[in-house]
């Protein structure tokens, strides 16, 4: 087993210093994480369901649809991905609705590391970021040095954001410190030679963590290790993102800011296909974490098919009639 040494992160405040006591040992970290308030599943799901009943109409809906488009990490993570596919995805990300110049671009495209260079080139000087999944995505089952190399490779190729997966096996067997130190190490690997660094999103694969207590603990663990974003899922495991899981993570970032003054972003990924669902997430962001998080810098949707549904709804709002799949681009 590799013993990790925490390296100073490239930039930005390092929250791990504020939690030096809590992360001093395996037992201290366990005590801290298990000392977080529990989550009652039934109550949490009821709260999320209630937020889902908010009725978002007219101007609020128009605002939400545009915001949701700006928050999309347009994703392709398939074995059959090709450079051509990625280029097409980038074109779509920059101009989701070619017929409407007023339509915003998405936040990022999300690809495997070997596609980063292609994406970077295709996106050129646009503001769309390139996010790369790394660390032996999606299972995370590889030696640490391979995960770090995977990360460094993507960063070197120009990735603006790294979406890493945690070692769920280590987490579920209670080796929290190992998970913590791995995040620190990946964060260090996000450094670029020019002194900048890629933003780090930490994927929990909440479908494998199974309980909301685990989601809350993983959230704090990742935030203490300096994650810039916490992300629900790889999209490869069911269930992927759910509204209650996302709500628990939003509570965590809210409480973390309360405790440290630092904001951390949240990214639900996988399974969000309809505008109506996306709007429920935005309502949840608004009412749980607060309006400060209603920004692509602090909330993202990891999705592929969602974008077209957002576009069709947007067209419906604009034209007054329903659109159809033939009127949005399929790439």
């Amino acid at each position: 087993m590799t013993t990790l040494k925490a390296t100073a992160p490239p930039v930005g405040p390092d929250p791990s210093a504020a939690f030096a006591d809590a992360t001093a040992s395996e037992s201290a970290l366990r005590r801290f994480l298990h000392g977080l308030p529990g989550v009652d599943q039934v109550g949490a799901e009821q709260r999320a369901a209630a937020l889902g009943t908010r009725s978002i109409k007219t101007t609020a809906k128009a605002f939400a649809l545009d915001l949701a488009i700006r928050m999309v990490d347009l994703t392709t993570l398939e074995g059959m991905d090709t450079h051509g596919k990625v280029k097409a995805l980038c074109a779509k990300a920059m101009h989701p609705d070619p017929t409407d110049p007023g339509c915003p671009s998405t936040a990022a495209v999300c690809v495997y590391p070997d596609m980063v260079a292609t994406a970077k080139k295709a996106l050129g000087s646009s503001e769309v970021h390139v996010a790369a999944v790394a660390t032996a995505f999606p299972s995370g089952r590889a030696a640490l040095d391979i995960k770090l190399a995977d990360t460094a490779d993507a960063v070197e190729a120009g990735a603006d954001e790294i979406d890493m997966v945690i070692d769920r096996g280590a987490f579920l067997s209670g080796r929290y410190l190992e998970v913590f130190e791995e995040i620190l190490a990946v964060r260090a690997a996000c450094a670029r030679p020019d002194g900048g660094h890629a933003h780090l999103k930490v994927i929990f694969e909440t479908g494998e963590l199974q309980t909301y207590d685990n989601v809350r603990r993983a959230s704090w663990l990742a935030m203490m290790a300096g994650a810039h974003f916490i992300k629900t899922s790889t999209g490869k495991v069911q269930p992927a993102a759910t509204l209650p899981v996302t709500m628990i993570m939003l509570e965590a970032v809210r409480d973390f800011r309360e405790a440290t003054g630092q904001m951390v972003g949240v990214k639900p990924a996988g399974g969000i296909r309809h505008s109506k669902d996306a709007i429920k997430y935005l309502v949840t962001v608004n009412e749980i974490a607060g309006e400060d998080w209603l920004d692509p810098d602090w909330f993202r949707f990891g999705a592929s098919t969602l974008l077209n549904d957002l576009l069709m709804q947007r067209s419906r709002m604009r034209t007054g009639h329903y659109s159809g799949p033939d009127y949005v681009t399929l790439d």
Binding site: D40, Q41, V42, G43, E45, Q210, T211, Y212
Partner: peptide, 10 residues
């Protein structure tokens, strides 16, 4: 008659 409720969850 006392009725007690408790949620059932993970």
């Amino acid at each position: 008659t006392k009725t007690v409720w408790h949620p059932m969850g993970l």
